[in-house]
Structures are given as structure tokens and as C-alpha cells.
Amino acid sequence: MARVVVDVMLKPEILDPQGKAVHGALTRLGFDGVASVRQGKRFEIELDGEATPEAVAEVERAASTLLSNPVIEDFVVRVEAGV
């Protein structure tokens, strides 16, 4: 068994009103020194087998077709060690 993590974030040029609202709340609660907040999504995918290059390529395909929308989002796929 292996775990592959996919992080999906809005592209830098896309406005993130949710991140901005979180930033506003942090400031209101006294968490100082926060310059900005961007909100994203994290998917933890447990594979049936090992994280072979083929299996990881398949997760990348899933990330680019369903897990993220390439019009507004970027994604990063990484294999989590020692699960």
C-alpha cells in the first residue's frame, strides 16, 4: 500500500475570496503578521499496490481530469513515504 497526495491550489493569478475572508478573520482574531492566505484542497489517495511510476502517472491523470480544473487550478502530486 502506498499513499499519494494531490494538492490543488487556485492559480496565482486567480482571485481567492475565500482565502481573503480567512485572512480577514485571522487578523480580527489577533493573528498578526499574516501577509496573505490562499485556500486549496488536499487529496490523500491510498493505492491498492505500490507507487510505481505507472500508478503515479495514473494519479496525475486523475488530478488533471477530475481533481483539478486546469482553467483555474494547479496541482502537485507527491508520493508520501513510509505509510
Binding site: L15, P17, Q18, I72
Partner: peptide, 11 residues
């Protein structure tokens, strides 16, 4: 159709 929809600007 091209493009995508985001959360309303004012949330």
C-alpha cells in the same frame, strides 16, 4: 464551453 465559475467575489 470555455472558462470556469468561482465563488462569488463577495462570498
Amino acid at each position: 464551453l470555455p472558462g470556469a465559475m468561482l465563488r462569488n467575489e463577495h462570498l
